Computed example of a mutant assay.
Amino acid sequence: MKKTVKDVELTGKTVLVRADFNVPMDNGVITNDKRIKAALPTIQYILDQGAKVVLFSHLGRVKEESDKEQLSLFPVAERLSQLIDNDVLFVNETRGVELESAVDDLQVGEVLLVENTRFEDLNGKKESKNDPELGKYWASLGDVFVNDAFGTAHRAHASNVGISENVEAVSGFLMEKEIEFIGNAVDEPKRPFVAILGGAKVSDKITVIERLLEKADKILIGGGMANTFVRALGHDTGKSLVEEDNLELAKSLIEKGKDKLVLPVDLVVAKEFSNDSAFRTVNLDGINADEMALDIGEKTVALFNDILKDAKTVVWNGPMGVFEMENFAEGTVKVCESLAKLEDAITIIGGGDSATAAEALGFADKFSHVSTGGGASLEYLEGKVLPGLNAINDK
């Protein structure tokens, strides 16, 4: 068990918090503030304990000096101020006298946001390569470190692992929730435990499939990755996206998975990758040479629904088709609806495109948990050790 923010005395202390404010921006305007809102319970709890808060986060990838203008965290400080109804001080530096004196001057109940941690990557990738001196420096600014950025837990950076190595490190509420839901779902699931995997490529999900074959009762396969399995079964897949170099692997997963691995039985196909293209639903042996599969069909939806209706734990990662196009979103919509109707099941979306889909379709609040980290949740499902999580002190 990892220590949480509730396991440490915070009164009067300067608390360093690694948040995930990697929000989408358009010309300096935040287009979705979900990640900022997700950090609020931890920040508010620390303030309620009579402490000072110093926040760290990255934003985007900083490759050259000109990126700094577009990737400043200043708009995040402004939005956070509105959400907590409290001034958030912003220091547009990642180190130096100005930052140090601002932290020293911080009063109990005040919040300070440090500039984008990845600005340090212009100086030899010091953030992304976990430069020991940088981690030690940031740790020196406070008394305790709260890591609440699950979205970066699969990376060993100076602002998560580096700080953790130099000061007491605990998890925030968001990180704790991710550990509880995703960890428990895979290690101690209520059964039947069903995993739904979609997205474009089998290669992205190989390790997840292999691990879930040991853990889950059923694995439902959709999305572009299903095409590789359909080809491995011996069907012609026309112009569909197929990973030719993974066909043998797909065959071996089918043999190993037997009836545990559930593949589509029909597909929605079109001649062009466009919402304007004419489309039709065909059985697996009905795809013409000039067609591509872009969604799962009605029979597959019915098959998946039948399996899901008895499920007690469901983990979903990856859409069932090209959900961004209305004509090829039906499979994803129907899976979302099925999960939303499960009343006494634990339903978890593993971040990334599935989370985007659930949100766009208005179903996000119907799930037990929507993960904030696409890559991190996938690696957690694989059973990999996440460096950012591992660096948090044990109870």
Rank of each mutant, 00 (worst) to 15 (best):
E298Y: 14
R280W: 06
D276I: 10
L249K: 10
N283A: 14
L247R: 03
K260Q: 09
A270W: 01
N275R: 08
N275P: 15
N288S: 13
A270H: 07
A293K: 03
E272A: 14
A302E: 15
E255W: 07
F304M: 05
K256L: 08
A302P: 15
L253F: 02
F273I: 01
E291F: 00
L267A: 11
G297I: 02
N283P: 09
V265P: 07
A250M: 04
L253N: 04
V262F: 01
L261S: 08
I254W: 04
P264D: 03
K256R: 07
E298R: 13
N283H: 10
K258W: 06
I287W: 11
V268G: 06
I287Y: 12
V282K: 07
N305V: 15
V269R: 08
L267R: 05
S252E: 12
E272H: 12
A278N: 14
I296C: 09
V262G: 05
L294T: 00
V301P: 14
D266R: 03
K251C: 05
F304W: 09
R280D: 05
K260H: 07
L294F: 08
L294A: 02
K271F: 02
S252A: 10
F279Q: 09
D290S: 15
K258P: 04
L253T: 06
A270D: 04
D295C: 12
E291C: 00
K256P: 02
L247V: 09
L263S: 02
S252T: 09
P264K: 03
K271I: 00
A293W: 03
D290Q: 13
N283W: 05
G297W: 02
D295E: 10
D290V: 07
L249H: 08
G297L: 05
